[in-house]
Amino acid sequence: MSRLSALLLLLLCSLNTRADVQVLTSIKPLQLIAAAVQDGVGTPDVLLPPGASPHNFALRPSDVRKVQSVALLYWIGPDMEAFLPRVLQSRTLPSIAVQGLPDMQLRHFGEGHDAHDHGDADAHDHDHRPGTLDAHLWLLPYNARVIAARMAADLAAADPANAARYQANLKAFGERLDALDQRLKARLQSVVGKPYFVFHEAYDYFESAYGLEHAGVFSVLGEVQPGARHVAAMRARLQATGPTCVFSEPPLRPRLAETLTAGLPVKLAEMDALGGALPVSAQGYEQLLGDLAEQLAGCLEAL
């Protein structure tokens, strides 16, 4: 065999073992799960930029082209990304709404909670009415396993040469989640039962996994201020609670936060359910949950 032929054969083998299967996810948490499965083979892309809300994102023409052309697309489902179903109607390649995967453990708003203060109904930026699906399902490690298993199967079918690598990555991901689960249980044990409030009811899956429960929700848009009577009622709720934390989500803190907490023994803090600032890596999903635990426990322990 000539040297040129040998080089061509080597190139073809290299291309075959590193098939470029383009994966696009709607939001960062799904990208982090995909990154764990694709580790060493490819890097998934994400549709929403950091800080964008999956509930009301506006697609640019370049986003629409990306959605139409990518090989595999994963999104939460119509209960989260309401902007996607219309665009996906004309997509011919696989699109997987993970909320519909078999074996997913799904929650609905109002499960396991007493009546909470949800602010003015007209101020909600998406549907959190009791009984509707809570689509923040990625915050339950069990669901991340289910999603990763589907991704590994899809990638193995699209890229058989790397099927063993995808399965090995899936196994490693599961083992890391086992270890993470034990770390988080130990980290959060000291704050179980401590009251705290949130501006966005996004954490129920995480709370259910680790024995936590928020005491109330102030679900209002950053630019919508409820009436004075309602603000007074919310302040009275915080005052009756005593020292506590109120968590908002980056990048914006609701204007209401300062009004609600002024003069009260309340700490304002953030919890990022989307992990917008995290680098994309095989360990990114574990970092997302680990950061949530640190943000929550760090504030409550400092009271």
Rank of each mutant, 00 (worst) to 15 (best):
G112C: 09
E81A: 06
R145M: 15
Y205S: 04
L278V: 15
A297M: 11
Q295V: 02
P61F: 01
H108I: 10
L73P: 10
C13P: 07
L72S: 05
M80T: 09
L137N: 02
G242M: 10
F197M: 04
D63F: 00
A297Q: 11
R183W: 05
M271E: 02
Q189P: 00
F199P: 07
A82P: 05
L84K: 07
Y196A: 01
S190A: 14
Q225W: 10
R183Q: 13
Q283M: 13
G193F: 06
D39T: 06
R107D: 09
L268R: 08
F57E: 02
P226A: 04
A215Q: 10
H113D: 04
L24D: 11
Y196Q: 03
A232I: 05
F57P: 01
E213Y: 03
V220F: 00
M104I: 12
D159C: 11
Q105I: 10
D181F: 04
G174V: 11
M80S: 09
G42K: 04
A158G: 00
V41Q: 05
R187W: 03
P251R: 00
V198W: 02
S2N: 12
L7F: 07
T132M: 03
H214A: 04
L184F: 03
P49R: 14
M151L: 11
S2Q: 05
A262K: 15
L252P: 02
Q287K: 14
P78M: 08
A302K: 12
L274G: 14
A121K: 13
A269M: 11
R165C: 01
L24Q: 13
R237E: 15
S219V: 01
D79Y: 04
R253A: 14
A179G: 06
R176F: 00
A240T: 09
D63S: 15
F218M: 12
F218N: 08
S62F: 01
P250Y: 13
S2W: 06
S219C: 01
G211Y: 02
D134C: 11
F206Q: 05
V192Q: 14
D45I: 03
G222N: 08
E258V: 14
R86W: 04
P279S: 14
G42F: 09
A232V: 06
L11P: 02
R255T: 02
Y210D: 01
V70L: 15
A168C: 05
E81F: 06
S26T: 14
P44N: 12
H108F: 12
L221T: 12
P29C: 07
V280H: 07
G100I: 10
G51M: 08
L106P: 15
V191P: 02
A257N: 04
T132K: 09
V41Y: 01
G112T: 09
